[in-house]
Structure formats: C-alpha cells, structure tokens
Design a protein around this nucleic acid. Structure first.
Lengths: 366, 366
DNA sequence: TAGCATTGAGCGAACGTTCGCTCAGGGCGA
DNA sequence: TCGCCCTGAGCGAACGTTCGCTCAATGCTA
C-alpha cells in the first residue's frame, strides 16, 4: 500500500479533563488514578476510572516528577554499546532498573580522553550534564574511556548519586566490577598446569585498568611458578579481532617458540586463532589458548575456546542495587565490589574435552 | 582505601536562587541562562552568569518540558540489545538523536508474543506505556518480537509519533529497514555463480518477517537459475551458533551432498562452520558459505566469511531522521524505507581471495 | 437532641520553568 | 519643553501534577 502516515497528534487528556467529565475536582481524580490508598467513595472512583478510559488518560510523569523532585529515571553513560560485554551489562542493568520501576536514559560516549590518538576531552561531560539536567535520580557510568576523565568524575561526585563500572579519578563513587586480576591469574594457572612455560598474552590497551589488572594476574601466576614474565611476550591490541591478529603476528616474530597464549577477550581470540592458523600452527596442539569473557559464541569456535567467564549480567544487577542504595541515602562502601570469575575449560587450551570450573575471589578492581 | 561514600545530597540551585543572589527577578535570570536572544543589559547578564556559576546552577529540564510540552527525549523500545546487529542500530540511533539534541530512553523487551514457547503478551506494551507516560516526543521500535503485537501497534499509532524497524500490524507507523529479500538474492546468486546448485540455507526463526524475506530472496535466485528450492534444504535455527550447529547437522543428515550454505547471520555462521568442520568437511573446498550482517569479526574467522553487509548504522540514522520528520508534523510515506545491502566476498564462498562488492536495491521490508 | 468522630471531597499551594505583556525610565527630535 | 520610542526589567499566568489542610455531611454515642 502507499500513502502517508497521518500527522494529527492528539494532545493527552489531563487530570482536569478527566475530572471535569466525571464531575469531580481534579485533585480527587488524582487520588483515584495515581494516588495509592485513599478515601474516595467507590461510586465516584468508578466514574473517574470510566472517564479516564474514555478519554485515554495517560498520567503525565513529567508533572509528577516536578512536584516529587524525583524522576524514577537513572542515567547510563556507556562506552561503545556495540561491545558485546558492555551490551550484556547494559541490558541486565536496564532490566534490573525497570524491575524497580526505574527507566533508563542512555548516553553513548564516542571518543574521549585516552581514546585512540586523542587527548581531547570527548563528550563524556556533555552526556553527564545532559543527564543531570534531566534530573535523573542516579547515574551508572560504564565507559572505560572515562577512567581518567576528572571532569566527569567531579560531576558524578557533585551532582547525583552514581555508581561506576570503572575506576573514577578522585574516588567518591562506588565501583562495581569483576575480579580481573583473578581472571588473569586463573587463566594463566590453567595454562601452567598443562605444562606450558612459554606463555604469552595478547592484551587490550594498556592504559585501561582492566587490562593492567589482568596482566598483573597473569604475571602473578607466572611468578608463582617461578617463570619470569617477559615484556616480549605481552603484546598490546585494541580489543578487535584484526588488532589481535596483528599483535599475534608480532608475537610470533618475536618468539616463534611460544606454546600458549592468554587473550584478553573472546573476540580478540578470533583474530589470534586466525593468525595462528595462518602461520601453520594448530590449536591446541602447537599453541594453547585461554581467553576472557566466555561469550556465547566461544564454545562454537574451532576449536571451542577455554575462557574465563565474566559475570556481566550480575555486574549490571549489582550496579543497580548499589545505585538504589545510594539513592536511598545509604552510605555505601568505597572499596570496589568485585564479583568472582570462573574458568570454563574447553578444547583450545588442550585440556581434557570436558568442562572444568574454578571460581575465585580476590582483591582488585576493573 | 576504605570507608563509605558520603550520603549528603545537595539540592540543585533553582533559577529563583540564582536570581536572588544576582538581585534580579527569576524571569530575567531565565532569559539569560536558558533563553536565547534577549534584551538584557550586559552588566546584569554578567552578574546572573556569575551567580549561576557560584551556585552550580543546572537548569531543570523537567520544568521546562512541562511548560513546553516537549521533552526532547525519544524512546527506544528494543529487543535484545545483546544482539550485535540491534546494538549497532541502537548506538547509531542514539548518536544521531543526541546530535539533534534528543536524549534516548531505552526499554528492553524480554519475551513477548512469538518468543520461544510463549503466547504471552510480554512486556512490550508495558514498556511503551512507560515511555508514553514519560511523554517522550517519539518512539523508535526495534524489537522483532513485536512484529505481531497488536496492542503495541495500537499504542504507537495512537499516542506518539513512531518509527519502526519491523512490520507493525495494522500499519500507520513508518518502517525503515534494509532490503532483506535482496540480501537473500545476492548471497544465493553469488553461490550460484560459483557453480553451486545444491544450495541450502540455515535461517533464523521462520516467524520473523526478516527471515521469510531473506528466504524468499534465496528462492528467487534459485528459481531464476532453474533450480527448484527444496524444503529439505531450508533449516530453521534460532540465531545462536549452537542452534545453527544443530541445524547444520540436521541438514547434513537430510542431504549429505549439499555444497553450499546461505546462513542468515554471521554469528550463526560460527556454528555452521563448527558443525561442518566436525563432519570432516572443509570450507570452502567441500562446502561454500555466505552469510549475513558482515560483523567485524566475519573477516577474521577461519576461513574469512563472505557476507552480505547490512547497513545497521545507517538504518539507525535513517530511523531518527524519519522520526524527527514525524515529530515535526510532516507527513511521511507509508511504504517501508529500504536501505541497500552489499555483498562482501571473502574466502568462505570459494571465490577469489579478493574483496568484491555488489550493491542492490529492491522492494521488500524487514 | 447535643456533641463528636469519621468519611468523602474540595481547595490552595508548590514544584521550576517559559512566555507574553506591562511598566518605568532615559535619550532624542521637533 | 513636550511627547515618543526604545531599552531593560518585572510581573502574572500557565504547564499537570501531589500533598496537606479544610470543610460539609453523615452516623453514632451519650
């Protein structure tokens, strides 16, 4: 069919109009339609309800927010939601928030301090300010590129209850995340336990705390076995499969004898697998791999990927819980809340085909 | 460090307070701080500005929205944002919206009509109603599971300007998407041009229009070459790699002679690759593969995936543009706006290693 | 029958803005 | 010197709610 969509926009019926039709004052209508337990005669209530239905009344929460000084809305300032890990977190957080009657206003940040080749301030502060102007009841920050943004940190401290997924310069904002150091440690321990000693790591950008934490865990594990971590064996990539493939080629050039790799994300593992394959090496026979995240596709790669499962969804829920407590005015501990990670063993690490598990808890934040 | 995050919450300074400090009426302060071009003496303006800074004034857009009857906010009702394709769309839409000064309120839908094993209404209507109560200026619907939800359709038609990514029962809401039928056609044509005749397809859930459109394109191409599409060669999966792997095993059982597969998504292609590998078949030597989406990881799989690129980001921008026109009161065509797709040729389809391209435009919606 | 508690409903104010109108004062031309 | 226009600022109303208070009418007890 062809034509145009109508343009007539009907204004919403207000409480006053409903009240007029029901023959009561608008305050009485308010009690019935939006108030909770109130003293209104059943017959009157019926009339009001009927009038509301006829007029298609929809409460105006803007007006309500104004008088109540609360919007039942939280802001989510997110880095790239295209990133599957962040997306999982965001979806879980939104679900949790809605379960508590809160809506979520999102702001995606592009660029920003510390992003590829830019010292520019990015629009992080702009996004946060926008959320503040809209009077969100709280803000969840989930954008690693804000890790060093002091301006945003100040806004979060100053204007609104907030919870962060990443470190906030200057503190004062509760942090929730998972135990990345532990992740690096158990991944590397697993490779060590398979007899590997020449273990490399393909990391995300070093400037990210999460990357440094994972790398520290990797080094912890090596040292515990008396292996000296070599700088040559830690190559930096940019979270993309392509970057990881390039990093892997560099790695193989530096040390062709490497027998195992700890990769910082499943998506990068795709690139590592591809580069190893191109170099004629077989996984896990020639090189074993363990990665991080345990995305749904990990177990379907060839070979299935051993990966450290990161509890993104739980982190999202925890962030919302924490934020609600902040909003309620409760004091909240300043030490980061760290959720445990667990190793999921599959073929890529050369262990038995079964699934093994190993939980852990530790001390370091994202 | 240890301790608690402070709980003191300072109320925002209002226009009145700023005005008092500057010694002017609050309306004058309003002109300076939020109004545009106004007649205020420079000296006065300076005083007001200074007072605003001292008090940390942040305009209350809730109040502004109330009087202006517009919130500069749009709602995004999304299916699973964990889905990379949808996430790309959502991020692009949010960026575009913010560029136009609009914030985005998201609602993720879980379950819903037509979702696995449930005829339950899901919370689509609840989410939309929430957005309407918050008086969003418009809504973008991007949740395939709402395809058959008449209640949501009615809300979208009735209460607020809307644009949809999927078909809306009863019409009246502009649709924007990409040309999925064309996608199915060019993918299949490519395989036909490589000499394949026994071409199967691993599809998403049939109940989805996008799946039926792609399948129709696939059949179009086959028929155009005189090949009769066989029901045995079309196997349904659930968008997951695991589901696709299972579907592939079923396919190989039904017809072990199949030499090419058109897969409905890159993520499912991972599962198809895995199942083919497990059966001892090599890609592309024994079986050629073309898939859909062209996600970033596609070119890094082993072998690199030939895929039909779907313009998610542009779709997001187009949706916002269209919505803005709707909001402005313009009449908007009811025929779906379909963005062209293009084939990206890589190794998995057995063609030359190079990258080839092929654009197309056509007639069918998501 | 007088006094009082209880119920049902209305009323005024407030939330923080925007917007259009009014009004005081000063500069200027006739 | 008078009248006019322009500039700068104030004022009142409105947006659609919530909330607490007042008030009339009713039913019950003494």
């Amino acid at each position: 069919m062809s034509g145009v969509c109508g343009v007539g926009r009907r204004r919403y019926a207000s409480l006053k109009e409903v009240a007029a039709r029901a023959g009561v004052s608008f305050q009485t209508a308010s009690k019935v339609l939006n108030g909770g337990e109130v003293r209104v005669a059943p017959a009157t209530a019926q009339r009001i309800l009927a009038a509301a239905v006829e007029l298609g009344y929809s409460p105006n929460s803007i007006a309500r927010s104004l008088v109540q000084r609360a919007t039942a809305t939280i802001g989510l300032v997110a880095g790239d939601l295209t990133d599957a890990a962040l997306a999982k977190f965001a979806v879980a957080a939104e679900q949790a928030a809605r379960r508590h009657g809160l809506a979520v206003l999102v702001g995606n940040i592009v660029g920003g301090l510390g992003e590829r080749g830019s010292g520019a301030p990015g629009d992080g502060a702009k996004v946060v300010r926008m959320l503040v102007e809209r009077r969100v009841d709280g803000i969840i920050a989930a954008a690693p590129q804000l890790e060093e943004d002091a301006e945003v940190a100040e806004l979060l401290r100053r204007y609104v209850p907030a919870v962060s997924l990443h470190h906030v310069p200057g503190g004062g904002v509760p942090v929730v995340g998972s135990n990345h150091r532990e992740a690096g440690r158990i991944a590397t321990e697993h490779l060590l336990s398979q007899g590997h000693r020449r273990i490399a790591t393909v990391t995300g950008p070093f400037r990210r705390l999460v990357v440094r934490s994972r790398t520290r865990g990797y080094e912890d594990a090596l040292r515990a076995e008396g292996v000296d971590p070599s700088d040559d064996l830690a190559v930096e990539a940019d979270w993309t499969p392509g970057g990881a493939a390039a990093a892997t080629r560099l790695l193989l050039e530096r040390d062709p004898q490497v027998t195992a790799v700890f990769v910082h994300s499943d998506e990068m593992a795709i690139g590592v697998l591809s580069a190893l394959g191109a170099s004629g090496r077989k996984v896990p026979e020639d090189v074993a791999i363990v990665s991080c995240d345990d995305m749904p596709f990990a177990e379907h790669l060839t070979p299935p990927l051993t990966s450290v499962r990161v509890p993104f969804a739980q982190t999202g829920e925890a962030a919302v819980e924490l934020l609600l407590r902040r909003i309620a005015g409760e004091a909240v501990p300043t030490e980061p809340v760290l959720l445990p990670v667990e190793l999921v063993v599959r073929r890529s690490s050369g262990a038995g085909a079964g699934e093994g598990r190993d939980g852990g808890e530790g001390e370091e934040a994202t």
